[in-house]
Simulated scan of single mutants.
Amino acid sequence: MLLGVVTLNSSSALTGGYDNYNYDLSGPELTRLYNSPVFHAERMKRPLNGFSTWLGPISHSGVRVTLADGSKWLIHKGDGYGHSSQTVVTNARHMSSAWTTVSSTEFHGRKTVSDLVRAGGPMYHWLTDNCHVGSRQMMKP
C-alpha cells in the first residue's frame, strides 16, 4: 500500500497538529522513497501539546531514518495523521528542535521506508496501538 508524505509546518511539528494534508512527493518520487533502503534509524521523542518536556508516555515518538543519499525522514503515527494509514512519513526538515533521540540502530540497508511504515501499523489506538508502540516496532531488527 502506497501512502502520502505528510508535510508539516513548524508549529504543527512541535505540537503534533495537522492543519491539512499536503504532499512533498507523489508518483514515482513517492514510490522511490518507500522503496529506499534505511541505513540509520533513531527513535525520537518530543513533548505533547502543552508540555515543555517529555516524560515516558507523556510524549510523542517516532523514528527518524537516514537513507543512502543522506536524506532524513520522520516516520510516526497518530490519530488522524494520515488517510489510509495513521503511520506517516514526513521530511525531517519539518521537525522542531523539541525532538530528542532516545535510541538508535544501524539497518545497513536491510529494511526499507515501506518496511518501517508497515511495522508502525495502519491503525491507531491511544492505549494499545499508539506512537510509542509503533516506534518500538519500527526499531526491531
Score class of each variant (00 low, 15 high):
R93G: 06
Y34L: 15
G70Q: 10
R32L: 11
G4I: 07
Y18H: 10
G78A: 08
T87M: 09
V88D: 05
K140Y: 06
R64V: 15
P141C: 01
A92H: 03
G120Y: 04
V133W: 11
P122K: 12
L30P: 00
R110E: 14
V133F: 08
V63R: 08
T128D: 02
V113F: 02
E106V: 09
L25T: 01
S36G: 05
F107D: 02
K72D: 09
G78W: 04
E106F: 07
A119K: 11
V6Q: 14
F107C: 08
F107L: 13
L48S: 13
G70N: 14
H40E: 13
R64N: 14
N130C: 10
G80D: 04
F39C: 01
K111M: 14
P28D: 14
P47N: 07
D19Y: 08
P47D: 05
G82L: 06
M1C: 09
T31F: 02
V102I: 15
S103D: 12
Y18T: 13
V113G: 01
E106A: 12
S61A: 15
N22L: 11
H94M: 03
T15R: 08
R93M: 06
L25D: 00
G50E: 03
R118T: 15
L30T: 00
P122Q: 10
S96V: 11
N49G: 04
G50V: 04
R110I: 06
L48Y: 01
E29G: 01
V6A: 12
T87L: 06
I58V: 15
C131G: 06
G16T: 12
G121P: 04
P57N: 07
L55K: 13
T15Q: 06
G121M: 05
D115A: 09
V5W: 00
S97L: 10
T112Y: 08
V65P: 05
G120M: 05
R93N: 07
S114P: 00
G134Y: 01
R93P: 00
A13K: 01
T87Y: 07
N91Q: 06
D24P: 00
N91G: 02
L3M: 05
N35F: 01
D79Y: 11
A13Q: 09
I75N: 01
G134W: 00
F51T: 14
L3Q: 08
